[in-house]
Nucleic acid binder design. Sequence first.
DNA 1: GTCTATATTTCGATAGAC
DNA 2: GTCTATCGAAATATAGAC
Lengths: 213, 213
Amino acid sequence: MAQAARAGAQARGGSPDDSWGGVSPDAARRLLVAAVEAFAERGFHATTTRDIAGRAGMSPAALYIHYRTKEELLYHISRVGHDRSVRLLSEAAEAAGPYRERLAGAVRTFVRWHAEHHTTARVVQYELSALGEEHYAEIVGLRRRSEKVMRDLVAAGAEAGEFAVDDPRATALAVLSLCIDVARWYSPGRRTPEEIGAFYADLALRMVGAAPR
Amino acid sequence: MAQAARAGAQARGGSPDDSWGGVSPDAARRLLVAAVEAFAERGFHATTTRDIAGRAGMSPAALYIHYRTKEELLYHISRVGHDRSVRLLSEAAEAAGPYRERLAGAVRTFVRWHAEHHTTARVVQYELSALGEEHYAEIVGLRRRSEKVMRDLVAAGAEAGEFAVDDPRATALAVLSLCIDVARWYSPGRRTPEEIGAFYADLALRMVGAAPR
DNA sequence: GTCTATATTTCGATAGAC
DNA sequence: GTCTATCGAAATATAGAC
């Protein structure tokens, strides 16, 4: 199955935005990648369906064979991105070991994803308001799940005595906020996603008052 | 002078978005406030000139008496907001006293402004890409100034032995990033801008490895 | 300075041939 | 499934009366 092979390549982290290897048919995937790039550059409302189709090497009408509306394209991107976010955070939070390691792992992975896939992440994090009402509500639900994962992790670490925080809820939201904003400012060059992830993991440990390693 | 009186009211912090008290004539100010609200809610490109004019209680054509284009409205908002940001940060950084107090003051003030004026701040921070080329370049210059202020402050604190940071530049950008993202998630209710500012000042001190107070 | 009316452009989405 | 051609709606901005 081509999908499984592509999922493997994706897990290893290939070219800048290969989050969409599993999407088929080919034309639908090309349109999705084109939409991600266009939405990230100019925003959803400033992007025309002609632009998306053009980037994918197709006519404007071809878009509507694979997606019912422009908004559905955004929803697809947003949905996949938020699913990924929840999964990355959850897996790190449920790992074995001390809470400081779990938090560091969660932040490192989450930040690395935001840097590595910064075009996708930019759309996922900053184009929410362009979603239709129902889609928006669904995505907000996923965001609450991410927030809960981080909140529970910080609270657990605090109760275990590994963290020293006055307000676990606010601290968790601040850590998440710091990670998310990476999608806004990151651009390739100065430092690798891996390096930024490691640096941010250290910052997060400082924020929760974990003893320096 | 009405402008001086309004500036006084503004410094004391009145209603949620009175950053525009000094703008005259009255119609121009109403349009500006309407644009801020609309841009913050839906984004620049999703906002129509009809919507802006409507919120200001005027006809669509009236907008063009006071502003040449919709983009000029955004530029005005962005310019004022960035000037304010640079000033808030600079004043705090140049204050007397230990660097940890200066950093705490800068973060507290900057965050408080982002929360108090979160509609304005949202436009200022997240609608940059809708600016015209020249305006964009000018605003980027102001942003670099803000970054330099924070960078120099963290570096000075580190050299003075008050902060323990591995990478002052990256740490400064992360602190700024954390502050800026407040504009994205803040909504009135749970906690006051003042409380969030104080909380974030503490987080920033942790990030730079300042000794706990 | 503000309005009504509208010129002009461009958009999202569809029709129908192939 | 993709194309060319185009519809109908809606956008920014302007013209001209008051």
